[in-house]
Amino acid sequence: METNILYTHKDLVEKSKSGDRNSQYRLYELYVDAMYNISMRMLGIKEDAEDIVQDSFVEAFKNLTSFRYESTFGSWLKRIVINKSINYLKLKKIPVTPLDQHEYHIGEEVSEPVKSNDINKVKNAIKILPDGYRQIISLYLIEGYDHIEIAEILGITVSTSKSQYHRAKKKLIEIVNVL
């Protein structure tokens, strides 16, 4: 079953590898919205997200021969989008991890409880989270990466990833509670 998932859209991927423009477009159509949303969550600016999505697809199609179904095509592409988004933030000197004391570890401290679960409030709260916090919350809770993967993506240690995540979550709950 797992193998079948890895080979999702294999036919389209194989045809795209040989440069078939129709198959490339069909793959693009299948994944563009998901990729655009990922980039929007990372960057928050429409034009920037569009540029990243564009670059990511170009890179993906140009390097498709190196894709060997070790993951699904979707997660392979997603990683390209995430990496490009992070690089873009670094280039713009936007901190991808908040600079304040991120070497200090915060244990499993009990945060303020959430007053009400309202997905719209959470969505709005994530949007207004400071840069760095927003990315780590998105990577962990929405994109589904674990701390080892996040550490790799952001170029930080696993413990920094964990502590940053806890800070970000605390901040997120604070915002949700005042919205």
């Binding site: 563009v32 949303n37 969550r41 999505v53 564009q54 959430v114 997905i119 809770l141 589904g144 709950i173």
Partner: peptide
Amino acid sequence: NFEKYITENKHLFDEHKADKSKIW
């Protein structure tokens, strides 16, 4: 529970529509 609530509803975070023809 808060984290679970978000991960269970993560599909709701895909709220944007890409300008397909422009990007393509």
